[in-house]
Design a binder for these strands. Structure first.
Length: 872
RNA sequence: GGGCUCAUGGUCUAGUGGUUAUGACGUCUCCCUCACACGGAGGAGGUCGCCGGUUCGAAUCCGGCUGAGCCCACCA
């Protein structure tokens, strides 16, 4: 068998890992803890490629830290609350929250969401994710919701959460309040309607442009710009609204753009965010033209009961018929929409629960500075969001499938009676209040029917993970967590709310590091959306190429950047697996017992030094969460230095009892496998188990020790590189001549002073290039000629600065045959335009030679300053 | 409108001041050499988006422009 069978092997090791429980977090271990505030995966069905990539990136960090001797906390977890599930369940069963009893509705949602958990867990396993099921949690479980409720009760006691009646974002389709973070915007073309308003007490008209004529009945005020002289006489007058005949005052306000529409704005309760500002500023009455379900109210008269869309159409028809609609034109509009159902949002004033955010902006920014961001530029996103906040966070939702708000309210006086902490988890729509009646007025207590925004749950994952309120000792040891991984789209939600909530409960940051990964795009670079139908399912990829190949793709994605899916990289990953596996096999054939470091030869020192450098660099990349760089560093070395050159050069040594080559093969192959183990856990485990198990001693490569530097020697690397280049040039020469690479050649002669430095490497050159004999000489018996002088810019520039260009121009004009020997003796003196002179030697100029001789059939090759004569 | 990221051979990509710009895929030639043909050796293929500036020297630093993606704001 000469092929690595990925799919088969992966299944085998996944099964073993499960048996061995190698991912288990040990709360009693003295080892340092590395804890990951893993994103609880939303139970919306199977994973798509973006999730697979994201979780792989997290797993890289987890596995790396485990091998560095950390006690890794990496929980398997799921997020089960919320609207997305509700929407899917409503579609599936054809229900709404209005026509289904609450408990039944919740049961259906819970059943639906939980039905995915087993399958999703299996998918994580197939990807090789090293999440620990012994510290499992899901956000809808009583043990988790209990913590959410307790944090709320504490904040309520401190006055940080409060109930208030303010206009909020409202989704008429989901019939619930939404936080600003849950509103997304999309471009839209709509009609701008020019409508005649009568000026009260005259026959004159004023034209007002509006996109929302259906709100005419809730028109409270008309505004013009104070800059606009042509409208100045209107200020202070009253206008009469069409259809409703209501008298409306005209005022001047800075916010009005005199050039848009007619420069006259009608302010309604409430059309958009600017209306909202005006409502606050002028303290306008909160007449409602639209109800919770997005239908027009009785305020609109005969339009009552119509949807916003129908009402708009009807009122436009009526205005047209009575000649009040002068004209319509298209206008671009950015409509706020519900993040999940995409229905346009309205602003409605409703009693809601709020959590104070405006008071804590500075603290959040300070906390954000304490956390180390990977990559650093992502911190700006959070800062921008915090600075742009204008309202407190609406935390109540008029939905069912989420954590209930643990309060009861008095029917008579409205007094709020919170649950006792000991009662939590509690559902006030089912459970009894802590007291039988209102302590103030004796009225009946009614359970709160609102639930929390689901970010109330997920924003305390760091508290839940660290046993906050469950085990003080563990909490002290585990908080703050080491790292929060997440994608950039939820910086303004998950990252922000987590910082806020954890700060409010502990006064400290929730984590030391935050790692932000980008999005995976479709192959053409457009975002994946189920509505476009370009979502990529990772399962067929896993089945065809294996998880390690898929993970190889994942680690070519630099942190924080969006990446189009490149199947080619997956295929390449599969090839790399095969290459590594064969390197392992080759090593296993040679190395049968654990070798000691002895009998090391020059080329061994060369590769060991390069290897040690790779250990150093790759480790630094891992520490900085730069997995793409770590992979490149290790792969380049493993494939194109170690396999292509070192292994080829030492094959002739493996037959004899050569200690040096055994030690080197053992050290480097094992080291490569270990360094790649976090990224490609299956194939590296296979290599380990097959070739190193009894030699290295750990049960699994994933709990083995990280490789160490053996030696670093610039001298050995330089010489080895030179040998490599000599051998390569001979190979290239064979290829050019059309010879097979294993063809024997008569003679290789290395000519030049530098050639003498290669003493000790003769056998490597001879064996690898199949030469019958090899000579090294300082001066050739043959005639040679200098053919070119090459300025070494990196030496000339820093030394001669602005004279550099002139020197290089002069060099180019010289006759190489004459100037070459002068350079070699260090006697080439040039006179510059300003009368000064400079002397150049080999540090500044490379002398290129060519053999010219008659008679003998010899080809010449040049490697740096060594001339190679080859006799076929 | 603001912010962030990006622009490099046909495609994807590395590269934050210094010899001839990296690698992969594809393509062409050669080689089944006893770890690997999912391999190896070699070749062809690039005005490093455009315009200025700084510098002895710019793919790299600065400014402007063009285009793409993401985030945010937003006009009734």
């Amino acid at each position: 068998m000469s092929q690595y069978e990925a799919v088969e092997s992966e299944k085998k090791w996944q099964q073993k890992w499960k048996e061995w429980e190698i991912y288990k977090f040990d709360p009693c271990s003295p080892k340092p803890v590395f804890s990951i505030d893993n994103p609880p995966r939303y139970t919306s069905g199977s994973l798509h490629l973006g999730h697979a990539t994201g979780y792989s990136l997290i797993d890289f960090a987890a596995r790396y830290k485990r091998m560095r001797g950390h006690n890794v906390f990496f929980p398997l977890c799921f997020d089960v609350n919320g609207t997305p599930t509700e929407i899917k369940v409503e579609k599936k069963h054809g229900i709404t929250k209005l026509n289904t009893p609450r408990q039944e509705y919740v049961r259906l949602c819970s059943e639906f969401a939980n039905s995915f958990i087993d399958e999703m867990t299996k998918q994580f396993e197939m990807l090789g994710e090293s999440m620990d099921p012994t510290i499992y949690y899901q956000t809808d479980a009583p043990y988790y919701r209990r913590i959410t409720q307790i944090t709320f009760l504490r904040l309520l006691e401190k006055g940080i959460v409060y109930k208030g009646t303010f206009p909020v974002n409202w989704c008429p389709s989901c019939t619930t309040a939404l936080a600003d973070a849950e509103v997304e915007y999309s471009d839209n073309i709509t009609k701008l309607n020019y409508i005649k308003f009568k000026i009260k007490g005259t026959d004159e008209d004023v034209l007002i442009a509006t996109t929302r004529p259906e709100l005419l009945s809730a028109c409270q005020l008309v505004a013009v710009s104070p800059e606009d002289e042509s409208k100045a006489d209107l200020v202070g007058k009253e206008l009469i609204t069409p259809i409703y005949g209501k008298a409306i005052k005209v005022i001047a306000d800075d916010k009005v753009d005199p050039s848009y529409g007619t420069g006259v704005v009608m302010i309604c309760t409430i059309g958009d965010k600017t209306d909202l500002e005006w409502v606050m500023k002028y303290n306008l009455p909160m007449d409602r033209a639209i109800d919770e379900q997005g239908r027009l109210t009785s305020l609109t008269g005969k339009y009552e009961g119509m949807t916003v869309k129908e009402g708009k159409q009807a009122i436009i028809e009526d205005l047209k018929a009575s000649g009040l609609l002068v004209r319509q034109e298209d206008t671009k509009q950015n409509v706020g929409r519900c993040w999940r159902c995409h229905h346009p949002i309205e602003y409605l004033q409703m009693p809601q629960w709020f959590l104070k955010t405006m008071d804590y902006k500075d603290q959040i920014l300070k906390l954000a500075d304490e956390v180390e961001w990977h990559p650093g530029f992502m911190k700006v996103r959070l800062q921008d969001w915090v600075n742009s906040l204008q309202w407190d966070w609406v935390i109540s939702r008029q939905r069912y499938f989420a954590t209930p708000i643990p309060v009861w309210e008095c029917e008579e006086c409205g007094k709020v009676v919170p649950a006792e902490e000991s009662q939590c988890y509690v559902d006030p729509t089912v459970d009894r209040p802590p007291v039988d009646e209102c302590p103030d007025c004796g009225g009946r207590l009614v359970g709160c029917t609102d639930v929390f925004d689901t970010w109330m749950d997920s924003s305390i994952s760091a508290l839940y993970n660290t046993f906050w309120e469950r085990d003080d000792e563990k909490f002290k040891r585990l908080y703050p967590m080491s790292m929060r991984p997440q994608s950039h789209d939820i910086i303004r939600t998950w990252a922000f709310y987590s910082l806020l909530r954890c700060y409010l409960m502990t006064g400290e940051r929730p984590w030391d590091h935050i790692m932000i990964h980008g999005f995976i795009m479709a192959p053409d670079g457009t975002p994946m959306h189920s509505s476009i139908g370009n979502v990529i399912d990772p399962l067929p990829i896993l089945e065809e190429y294996g998880a390690d190949a898929m993970r190889y793709y994942a680690c070519t994605c630099a942190l924080g950047e969006d990446n189009a899916f490149r199947e080619k990289d997956v295929i390449h990953g599969k090839r790399l697996c095969n290459k590594l596996w064969n390197i392992g096999k080759f090593t296993g054939m040679v190395v049968k017992e654990k070798p000691e470091m002895k009998g090391i030869q020059p080329m061994d020192r060369w590769i060991l030094s390069k290897f040690s450098r790779v250990v150093r660099n790759a480790t630094a990349y891992y520490e900085a969460y730069q997995f793409d760089r770590a992979m490149r560093e290790i792969e380049d070395f493993a494939w194109h230095e170690y396999a292509d050159h070192y292994l080829e050069m030492v094959k002739h040594r493996t037959r004899e009892g050569d200690d040096g080559v055994r030690f080197t093969l053992y050290t480097v192959t094992l080291g490569i496998a270990k360094m790649l183990a976090p990224l490609m856990p299956h194939v590296t485990e296979d290599i380990y188990q097959e070739n190193f198990l009894n030699l290295d001693g750990a049960r699994s490569i994933h709990v083995s020790s990280w490789p160490e530097e053996v030696l670093i020697s610039e001298e050995d690397e330089k010489k080895g590189d030179l040998i490599k280049e000599v051998i390569s040039s001979i190979r290239a020469w064979k290829a050019e001549k059309g010879f097979p690479l294993n063809r024997e050649i008569e003679l290789i002669e290395l000519i030049g002073p530098s050639a003498m430095e290669l003493k000790g490497y003769e056998s490597d050159i001879v064996e690898t290039s199949r030469a019958k004999s090899l000579k090294m000489v300082v001066e050739a018996d043959l005639e040679d000629e200098v053919v070119a002088l090459k300025p070494i810019k990196s030496a000339i520039g820093p030394t001669f600065k602005q004279k550099g260009k002139e020197i290089m121009d002069l060099l180019a004009s010289l006759d190489p045959a004459q100037a070459g020997p002068a350079v070699e003796k260090g006697e080439l003196t040039l006179t510059l335009g300003d009368g000064s002179s400079v002397t150049l030697d080999k540090r500044y100029v490379e002398v290129q030679r060519k053999l010219t001789l008659e008679g003998k059939a010899v080809d010449t090759l040049q490697v740096r300053d060594i001339l190679i004569a080859v006799s076929p």
